[in-house]
């Protein structure tokens, strides 16, 4: 399963990082604590978070994550968008809350 498949299946908004939409997704992780993600997220994960500042892109890049999904209709900060385009790590968005989004992604990725 690729990032683009998730975008299409769940009608996610693509804010940035279009270069990375063909990336394979293997796992998911949910957290708003950056050190938790640095410590515990698996590579190739989709990361669901409420954080919108540009350090999320640095964390995703260092951990080789596949994409970031912002929930509750949140939008990324401008420098997050720039950083995401540079790194080719997509920032996606949904109006859904964390619980619903995580449940749907889990169902799809673990299929």
């Amino acid at each position: 399963m690729k990032v683009i498949d998730l975008v299409e299946e769940f009608d996610l908004k693509v804010f940035s990082g279009k270069n990375g939409l063909d990336r394979e997704v293997g796992q998911g992780y949910v957290s708003d604590l950056l050190s938790d993600v640095l410590g515990n997220a698996q590579e190739d994960s989709v990361w669901i978070t409420l954080q919108t500042h540009q350090n999320i892109v640095a964390v995703a890049s260092l951990k080789d994550l596949a994409a970031i999904v912002l929930v509750n209709g949140l939008e990324p900060d401008n420098d997050s968008v720039e950083h995401s385009n540079r790194e080719g790590i997509p920032i996606l968005g949904t109006k859904l809350g964390t619980f619903e989004m995580a449940g749907m992604l889990y169902g799809s990725i673990k299929k």
Binding site: L34, S35, G39, Q51, N55
Partner: peptide, 8 residues
């Protein structure tokens, strides 16, 4: 910002 959780 999601830092300072005492995990660093």
């Amino acid at each position: 910002m999601g830092f300072g959780a005492g995990m660093g």
